[in-house]
Every structure is written in C-alpha cells, then in structure tokens.
C-alpha cells in the first residue's frame, strides 16, 4: 500500500468519525461539551491508519 493511500485513509477516518461525532451531538446522544466529540475523530484516524498499515504489510500466498 502506498504511503499516500495510507495517509488518505487515515484522514478520511478522521473526517468520517468527526462527522459521526457531530451527528451524535445533533441527535442528542452526546452533549456538546462531551470529551467524546474530541476523541472520536482521533479514534477514526488511528483505526484507519492501523487498518491501512495492516493492509500494506507484505503478503505471500500461503503454500498449499
């Protein structure tokens, strides 16, 4: 996996989880001043970065 794609995935994860956090606030699940509003985007960033790293590991097909 290219580094640019990895970064792109992490940034998308950050944005997606950020908007999910905003949705949760708007639907009354989280309070506006909840720390989760801050934490969720970084969880998304880390999660997607980890997934990207896992996917970018060198692979070999298992021998039959």
């Amino acid at each position: 996996m290219k580094v640019s794609r990895l970064i792109g995935t992490a940034v998308l994860g950050f944005l997606f989880f950020g908007f999910v956090a905003i949705d949760l606030v708007l639907f009354g699940v989280l309070a506006l001043n909840s720390v989760m509003v801050t934490v969720l985007p970084f969880i998304g960033l880390l999660l997607c970065a980890v997934l990207g790293v896992l996917a970018s590991r060198p692979r070999t097909r298992p021998l039959a």
């Binding site: 996996m1 794609r5 792109g8 995935t9 998308l12 994860g13 944005l15 997606f16 908007f19 999910v20 905003i22 949705d23 997607c48 997934l51 990207g52 896992l54 996917a55 590991r57 060198p58 692979r59 070999t60 097909r61 298992p62």
Partner: peptide
C-alpha cells in the same frame, strides 16, 4: 458530510479487505 466521507472510506477499506483476502489474510 458523513456519507460523503463514509462512502470513500468504506470503498478504501473494502479494497484493502479484498486485497488481504486475495493474498491470504494477514500475509507475511
């Protein structure tokens, strides 16, 4: 905006998952 970011993210993650499955999950 959630859908606009979630769609491409899902596509990327699905692509990764497919590649991982095709290569034998976890590889290396």
């Amino acid at each position: 905006l959630t859908i606009a970011t979630g769609g491409p993210l899902a596509a990327l993650l699905l692509g990764m998952a497919k590649a991982a499955i095709a290569a034998g999950f976890g590889g290396a």
